[in-house]
Design a protein around this nucleic acid. Structure first.
Lengths: 146, 146
DNA sequence: ATTACTGCAAAAGATTTGCACTAGG
DNA sequence: CCTAGTGCAAATCTTTTGCAGTAAT
């Protein structure tokens, strides 16, 4: 897979009239090639290996732009720390552990849970719909038993 | 309605072996009687009118306990600020404005989106499932046009 | 050339924690 | 009694902002 998706993210950025800086390119590549659900700090740590001087503010900025374009989706929160980003936009649900923040993807059979029309009736422009299960992952559940 | 639900929240707390302090009682009452999606600060501000000395830490603490018991659910984040709590546990979806954080409830026809069994297969204890639509509310959309 | 984007440092919030004290069971 | 819960203040984290410099288009 690799760059293919990264290039797609990058072009989306440009098509929308944003500038494509090497920092943004690197962020797009990283997002395209991870199956995890990275936090802004995760993205920062990674891109830092290529651009040691990159600022966390730039990461936040870029993530916000991509999110507004609907290319990535915010997931969270568990009670640990902040936002995570979902990069897989195919229909699926997330299971979020409310203790450690771990996120697992699970298949979802029923599609179309909230329609654009339905949202429109509330004067709402729908960018993305998510199904999220909250609870405790095995590790944290056993942790609490103690 | 009023207290009915507040008492239910309170008993759930006790049944789970937690102490029922007047502060917690007040928090439960507030949660039971609001249709909005309060933030911890909202809860704090309200309970403060009855217990001026209550601490924000106590509010966070109590909300976390109720959340772990599955009596309330965290909703968010929009890019403005922190968590909101959903107190209406009947099946419905939320539309969250990613700009101002406003949350609207919309009916949901399709039930059973992620099953306990499905979650269990991932060694995950499911407390609650949420369907959330992210996007822009009318006010913020028009704001951005400018 | 423009002006969006960057990096930095500081600010602003949100949430958590340690600790001594209080009160629910 | 006993220990969970409270209030307070400080600490910690996450996210945002202002600004001067830089580079994408």
């Amino acid at each position: 897979m690799s760059d293919f998706q990264g290039k797609r993210l990058a072009s989306t950025l440009q098509d929308a009239g944003h500038r494509l800086t090497p920092q943004r390119q690197a962020i797009c590549d990283y997002l395209a090639n991870t199956r995890s659900h990275p936090s802004p700090a995760d993205v920062y740590e990674f891109v830092r290996t290529q651009y040691p001087s990159i600022s966390l503010a730039t990461v936040y900025n870029t993530l916000a732009v991509l999110r507004d374009l609907g290319e990535i989706v915010e997931v969270g929160p568990g009670d640990t720390a902040g936002v995570r980003y979902e990069t897989d936009l195919t229909p699926h649900a997330n299971l979020v552990c409310q203790s450690c923040g771990r996120i697992v993807d699970v298949p979802l059979t029923t599609p179309h849970l909230v329609s654009d029309a339905q949202a429109g009736a509330f004067d709402f422009e729908l960018i993305n719909v998510r199904v999220t299960g909250f609870g405790l992952c095995g590790v944290c559940r056993r942790e609490r038993m103690k």
